[in-house]
Simulated scan of single mutants.
Amino acid sequence: GLSGSMNYDEASEEDDDEAEERSRSLSPNTESTRPASASSTKSTTECLPLGSPSAEGSSVEVDNLEEFVLRPAPRGVTVKCRISRDKKGMDRGLYPTYYMHLEREDGKKVFLLAGRKRKKSKTSNYLISVDATDLSREAESFIGKLRSNLMGTKFTVYDNGTNPSKTPGALLEETNTRQELAAVCYETNVLGFKGPRKMTVIIPGMNMNFERVPVRPACEQESLLSKWQNHSLENLIELHNKAPVWNDDTQSYVLNFHGRVTQASVKNFQIVHDNDPDYIVMQFGRVAEDIFTLDFNYPMCALQAFAIGLSSFDSKLACE
């Protein structure tokens, strides 16, 4: 088989589609499946024996959709998904809807999540739902959201809990307060450097039972982004995009996606832990103009992975 060792498109977002068709690089499959561990040395309670990512998504069963999208991937299993972008409808494609499906071994696809950017919002704000037809904030199917800062360079992923700042003085039950599930930071390219994006992803750590440690900030100082900026990483996991390698033959940056990505794009990325860069926690890449593959492993869940993928779609002028 052939696997995509993908070029990074160095054109602007507008030129994305044309340039991607031109720059492609295929290399023989050299997939490695050695066992791996990505436990952080910065935390005392994390326990992340991540295991081999070689298993396929066939053993993944979606019994309860709401529970499944919040549950970390089974250890040793790569959950393979596909994201489709629907630009039809209103607003000339400015507010496309994104759908995430689980790819089963028998070729069937199982719907997991849908997301769409909210209109009339000062910053990029995506609603995420477990119902493909109802993406309203008030719907019972509302499962989480992704929100950016004004620059569009930092994103936070929330579940569907209550925002503590919206109910000042009220004694909320701990379980009703919203959780922060991930934060994504894109390094700005203020000098116009035309290279691959640099991403940092912060997610809550895992306890000894391989369950996510809840992060429920009562104020801005307790948020994932603030903790990361203050180097307070206890019970948190810091991940980065895998640095691509410059290929002299193709005159471009390349990453090996083992056949899961077939078109070059500035949006293609792989997320790893610094302690073990061979263990791919998540990878995302283009296979057609509006089709992308998204694969993730323990300790990430579907909602975290989908929201991180959505952040890559968002227009970040400062990062291009």
Rank of each mutant, 00 (worst) to 15 (best):
W228H: 02
G89F: 04
Y253Q: 10
L135Q: 09
R104W: 01
H240T: 15
E46I: 14
D248Y: 12
L102A: 01
V69Q: 09
N125W: 12
I271K: 03
S5F: 04
F292H: 09
N247C: 11
M282Q: 13
E320H: 04
P28M: 08
R85M: 14
D134R: 05
D159N: 15
K108R: 06
A264K: 06
S121T: 14
K267G: 10
P244I: 10
T175G: 01
M206Q: 14
K88V: 14
G144Y: 04
C81D: 04
A288F: 08
R147W: 00
M206K: 08
Y279D: 05
G89W: 08
E46N: 14
A243H: 12
N160W: 00
I128Y: 00
R22N: 05
F296I: 07
C319Q: 03
A11T: 10
D274H: 05
G76N: 09
L233Q: 03
D86I: 06
K242W: 01
S252E: 03
A243F: 06
R82G: 00
N209C: 05
E105C: 06
L113C: 01
F193N: 03
F296H: 13
P72M: 12
A38S: 09
Y158Q: 09
S311L: 00
N189C: 05
R137V: 10
F296M: 06
H101N: 12
P214T: 07
H258F: 05
K316P: 00
C219T: 11
S58V: 04
L191R: 02
L65K: 11
P74F: 01
L26E: 11
V69M: 07
T78K: 11
R212K: 11
P217C: 14
P196G: 02
V215L: 15
R212Q: 13
S40F: 00
D276E: 15
H101R: 09
A36Q: 02
Q270D: 03
I280N: 08
S37K: 11
E14I: 13
F284T: 01
L113N: 03
Q179K: 10
T262A: 11
R147E: 12
N275L: 11
C81R: 02
N163V: 09
S223A: 05
D276R: 11
D295H: 13
S52G: 05
E46S: 08
L236C: 06
M208N: 15
M208S: 14
M208C: 10
V213K: 11
V201A: 00
N230Q: 14
N29V: 11
P168I: 14
E140L: 06
T175K: 07
E21V: 13
N149D: 15
G144T: 07
V201E: 00
D17E: 14
R104Q: 10
G93K: 03
A139I: 04
E138N: 07
M90F: 07
R75C: 09
A170W: 00
L233C: 05
L112R: 06
